[in-house]
Amino acid sequence: MKNMLEIQNLSKSYKDFNLRDVSFTLPEGYIMGLIGPNGAGKTTIIKLVMSLLKKDAGRISIFGMDHRDHEVDIKSRIGFVYDNPNYYDHLSLRRIKNIIAPFYRTWDEGRFQQLVKQFNLPLNKALRKFSRGMVMKAAIAIALSHHADFIIMDEPTSGLDPIFRRELLDLLGEILQNEKKAVLFSTHITSDLEKIADYITLLINGRLVFSDTKDEVLAKFALVKGGRDIIGDIPLVGFKAHEYGFEGLTDNIQAVRKKYGSKVVLEKASLEDIMFYNNLGNNHAQFN
């Protein structure tokens, strides 16, 4: 199995934010969700991968090639959806497409027309008159119209209604029928895309918390609820206490079950729970 994306010891510093020593890989044939709260470094990583920012240290390779040495080659095979598409917004979608299409040898006009129709997008209206969701749909239509091998999406679901978000799942599922393709998306809305994600990478404060298969992640963590008296003893990644008890996240289900089995409730944790309590734990650690 080949790797679509390899990131090794990636670092980037700003005045008020540091991405520190991040490493993870995405094998081809799979979907990875890059999750984390706002300001975790998701967009920074995607911009570094797309060479829109210059890294301070580390190695990025895509399709087995260095992302800088083979930038043009690599980019022609990537479908990129950016959180804040910077299109010339006085132009219509048709004009923008006419500008973009020639850059891709593999541009598929039929596919584009089909997606525009499916997404109900007007071709002749200026983009500034588009809603945020429509702009996102337009960006997705363009990204999916040149048979890209690697789809990279930064916050693709923000501004999209749940109906279209599900449609997007179908589109991605279709792309993944080909096991030579891969998808990387970042999101802080973990609920929809988490369904189909094979790998989950969690970032908090510029650091990698974990990068693993979703099934491993969901099996590793559990929600714990119980009385306030045991908070100090129980192994928790992070917790929130309220007047009548607490809710927290553990990464040591066996130990909790063995020692506190009768005193606590253990429940399946969602990715949102996992992100939330890891973030809380991280903040606690910083204050202590």
């Binding site: 029928q177 189909i196 994600a197």
Partner: peptide, 17 residues
Amino acid sequence: IRKLAKELQISVITTSR
């Protein structure tokens, strides 16, 4: 595996497992 994953809208890895 990939067809089933797509239809059920679940991960390919889950289906493989």
